[in-house]
Amino acid sequence: MDKTMRFDLISLSLFVAVAETQNLTHAARIKHTAVSAVSKRISELEQQVGTQLMLRMPRGITLTPAGHSLLYHARQVFRNLEKMEEELSDYAAGIRGHIRIYTISAALMNHLPRVVSDYLSHYPQTDIEIEEQTGMSVVQGLLAGEADVGFFSSWTPSAGIEYWPWQHDLLSVLVWPSHPLAARSELTFADIVNEKMIGSHRNSAVSHILERQARALGKTLNMGLRVSSFVSMAELVAQQLGIAVLPVNEVASSTLHSGVRVIPLTEPWARRDLLVGVRDYGQASPSVKTLLGNLLPAEQAVQPEGEAERR
């Protein structure tokens, strides 16, 4: 015997309206429906689920625990319907998908442009938005539903996110050509800890790890300037206003500025993973899954590392 409950969308919509206004009359007015019809729909829902969903109080409506549960799931249903309608409208308009990407600077500078270019060569009508953010803002954007895909580093706490290893990078030191360290092929953090530095914004993962490593050496970093752009940092280095530490080991000096040298740090902690993540792979749009499929082996995309950690 099939015991699956089949809910009517009109009844669910009326239920949500009543729950949100906490008043049958107000909900009926919003939905352009008679109060008696709204009350009848709610009663039918309660009969269907086999328990009371609302308490009729003198001054309005109060949800029971079962009512709160139904409200949560009903809202999810309508959000998914809106997402479906938006995506199908995109197909009808020839866009064939919309992807919102939040990314840290390192991914945007080193790898992401190639990824986007390759994807758009196969799906040229996809609409892609890219916003540069700090690692924490990338994760928060994914959790809030503001971003569909996020690129961040393994240094960033990522609870609640499904993610996969994607690339690796290495912190490197930017110096001007006549700087005493410019002739070196590699550097340790002790070589630069006393230098005047140009730092990224205070909330960046790079800033946090450099400050932590300086404290481990009993030092305090001399941050003369802070800017958020890698290119701006390189410009300031070229003007000999300080050195900088950035995850740009694979970027040619001339890409940032012809007046700087890029020298890798040899510290083990200077190496990190770049991750790609989503809030919920199972709920991701076909466009997002296709993008991830281009980045990752199929079996890896199905089982993200972040999901395993949360279980």
Rank of each mutant, 00 (worst) to 15 (best):
E309D: 13
E309K: 15
V115R: 09
I243H: 04
R215E: 14
A216I: 12
A238S: 15
H168F: 13
I161W: 08
M233N: 07
V288T: 07
L210D: 07
S11G: 15
S121R: 06
L71W: 03
A159E: 13
R75P: 06
V173G: 02
I30Q: 08
S253N: 11
V231C: 11
G282E: 10
T33A: 09
P264N: 10
V116E: 08
K289F: 05
N194W: 11
S258F: 09
A66W: 01
G141L: 12
H168G: 14
V16K: 02
A301M: 13
A92M: 09
F7Q: 07
S153L: 06
V38H: 05
L70H: 01
I101Y: 02
S285V: 11
G50N: 03
W176L: 11
Y163I: 07
Q133V: 03
S258G: 05
S207L: 07
I99Q: 03
G97R: 00
Q239A: 14
L142W: 14
A17V: 09
S185Y: 12
W166F: 15
D273M: 10
V302C: 01
V193W: 02
R59D: 15
E307V: 15
R184P: 01
A284D: 04
L225C: 02
G282T: 08
G145C: 12
E129T: 11
E305N: 14
E131V: 14
R6E: 07
V231Q: 15
L256A: 13
S158P: 01
S89A: 08
T134H: 02
